[in-house]
Design a protein around this nucleic acid. Sequence first.
DNA 1: GTGGTTCTGGACCAGTCGGTACAGTCGAGG
DNA 2: CCTCGACTGTACCGACTGGTCCAGAACCAC
Lengths: 196, 196
Amino acid sequence: MLTAKGKATRDRIVAAAALEIRERGIAAVTLDDVGRRSRTGKSQLFHYFPDGKEQLLLAVAEREAERVIEDQEPQLGQLTSWDAWQDWRDVLVEKYRRQGVHCPLGVLITEIGRHTPAAQVVTGKLLTQWQQALQAGIHQMQAAGEIRADVDANRAAGALMAAIQGGVAILMSSGSAQHLEYALDLCLDYLRVKTS
Amino acid sequence: MLTAKGKATRDRIVAAAALEIRERGIAAVTLDDVGRRSRTGKSQLFHYFPDGKEQLLLAVAEREAERVIEDQEPQLGQLTSWDAWQDWRDVLVEKYRRQGVHCPLGVLITEIGRHTPAAQVVTGKLLTQWQQALQAGIHQMQAAGEIRADVDANRAAGALMAAIQGGVAILMSSGSAQHLEYALDLCLDYLRVKTS
DNA sequence: GTGGTTCTGGACCAGTCGGTACAGTCGAGG
DNA sequence: CCTCGACTGTACCGACTGGTCCAGAACCAC
């Protein structure tokens, strides 16, 4: 049904599409571009993705969503001290600063995600998973007495998510990661406050 | 050079394009769609926008950018008390909640803005203007002793901007304004903290 | 009303892009 | 070495879309 060679080709196609989309935006990328970059043709593309472009885009969305979480590990999984939180923050900012406009998360949220309901589900899952990881981290810090118990972990995690998305959105339209840093730092400062 | 009738037609075209883009996304909108909705044809369109689609998009971007600021007045201009801040926050959330996915700001930032350098300038100006209004509000509150003097107004205003953009981005991909509220409230709570 | 400019309608064009058809190659199992 | 399915290259098509052209209607100043 799918030999090793076939799987390799399929992967090449998805990787090429992801790269192409990150660099030039979803609107500008054609199937021929993907073919050229992956050294394949449209026949292969439609062989592996019978439903055409939409199916390919969905595969790209899934790939990029995985990547976004993976990029933050292992830090995201062990937010058990202020140092760990700071490390996570630094990794995130550094990653996105380096990627600049060609940012998997940004492309996912602002371009692929809105394209089709199926892709919306993918980004929705990513957001939920991410936010839960942050929420778990806040809970752990509360258990350790490092964060006030009256902080609503769910709300704070949600606010962090918005801060990140907004920082990335501005990064993509201005090229600067400054806002991302400001927003992350403000949220962390808020969590660090001892008394309200 | 441009009669009253001409101006009316031009406005109709821009308005139709803006509406169409908000509803269906920039990628799906064709010049014929705009023509149909504005009861004009391509000849008019190219008469008023000789450079074609790009120029029309820029006009739409400018229109939407103005709208975004106007929608927040008069609250945004007089952030001189906590009540005023709260009013501003409520107006913003309510507006965007009602607009849902068809949000001028969201479309501007995530679709039109990234399309061309000229449109990037428009969104850049909008962001700067907006952030300065917030910064001015924070300064006023500091002068009145309502916000700690050691808060960096520029950073806080930048964080607020990211919070809003992120909230809107999530709103556009999920349909829920919850994150926007969480993020705004966290920022305002941070500003309200008396001691650090 | 006359001349010039602005405005409008509709037919048309050229390029592009997603998608299809089909013939052929490769590779593993028997 | 034969066979059958997975895989690949090429040529092609239909639809769409941004943009052009041009003839004429409407409007304005004198």
